[in-house]
Structure formats: structure tokens, C-alpha cells
């Protein structure tokens, strides 16, 4: 593979991802607790609950404490005058080239968790694909959006 892109996304992305993963895990823990309650009321075997605890614990460890950091470490991007270069993926490393002249529109998005850390994602759409650069600092994201949309304005003859 060629040289990876140079820019990293905001370090706070790890925290934001941890929170959203924790919320999803919270659901799993609720189910686990519910299993114990059901077992207590209907005099069920506690085995199901025990297995659920094991599963919840392991997934929590993995998705909340391990994955965000690995993901952040891999995520890189670079915006050139002619194209956008993105790298992501933990087990499968993917590097994508999106030419500026193919960009149809650019969006910035911000959910409540990203907002808490003043982050935003940039979404780049071509006529065939969409690519997302998640969790940049708010100023960076809007600056990047404006820059890409300015660079993408170069028009070519047809689709």
C-alpha cells in the first residue's frame, strides 16, 4: 500500500465513540438484569443470566474500551487540491480516493454526543458513493466542508 494520509481525526472522537458504545451496551446490561429478574420471579435457572453477564462483560470490554481507540488510531484523511484520500478499518484496512471533480455535495453532521465534545462529521457524496470523515473539531469540519465544496466547483463536461 502507498503512504497513508497524514491527518488524524479529533482525539475526542474516542470519548464520543465510547459514550455511544456504552449506550448500546447499556441496553444489553438492561436485558441481562431483566433476565435475572425473570429468573428470580419465575424460579428459572440463573444460567441464562450468567451467560448474559459473560457476553455483556466481554462485549463491553471490547466495544467500549478497546475498539474506539483502535478505530481512532487507524482513521486518517487528507484533502488535496485534486482529491480526497481516506483511510479506515481495523482488521480490513481500506484506503479510498475520491476525486474532487466527482464530488456532488458535502454535508456536515452533528448528533448530541458529538455536540457535547464540539465535534462534527463530514459526509462527502459522489454520484455513486458516500464517504464519511467522522468526528472532526467543529471548526475543522466546517472549514473542510467549505474547502471541499470550493474545490469541487471545477466542472467537467459530463457525469
Amino acid at each position: 500500500m502507498r503512504q497513508p494520509p497524514i491527518n488524524r481525526i479529533a482525539p475526542d472522537a474516542i470519548k464520543a465513540w465510547k459514550i455511544s458504545a456504552a449506550i448500546a451496551e447499556g441496553m444489553l446490561w438492561l436485558i441481562t438484569i431483566a433476565l435475572f429478574v425473570v429468573a428470580f420471579i419465575f424460579e428459572f435457572s440463573y444460567w441464562f443470566g450468567a451467560v448474559a453477564v459473560l457476553i455483556s462483560g466481554m462485549t463491553t470490554l471490547f466495544f467500549v474500551f478497546l475498539l474506539p481507540k483502535l478505530r481512532w488510531r487507524r482513521w486518517r484523511y487528507e484533502v488535496f487540491e485534486q482529491e480526497i484520500y481516506i483511510q479506515h478499518g481495523i482488521l480490513i484496512v481500506s484506503r479510498t480516493l475520491v476525486p474532487m471533480i466527482r464530488v456532488q455535495h458535502v454535508d456536515t453532521k452533528q448528533g448530541p454526543i458529538l455536540k457535547k465534545y464540539n465535534l462534527a462529521s463530514v459526509e462527502i457524496s459522489t454520484a455513486a458513493t458516500t464517504h464519511e470523515i467522522p468526528a472532526l473539531l467543529e471548526e475543522d469540519a466546517s472549514e473542510l466542508r467549505d474547502r471541499i465544496s470550493a474545490l469541487a466547483r471545477v466542472d467537467e463536461d459530463d457525469v
Partner: peptide, 10 residues
């Protein structure tokens, strides 16, 4: 005609 190019490696 190519809109995007991606290389992947596991």
C-alpha cells in the same frame, strides 16, 4: 467514469 477508488487489505 470512475467515481471513487478503494483499496482494501486484511
Amino acid at each position: 467514469r470512475i467515481q471513487a477508488f478503494e483499496e482494501k487489505q486484511h
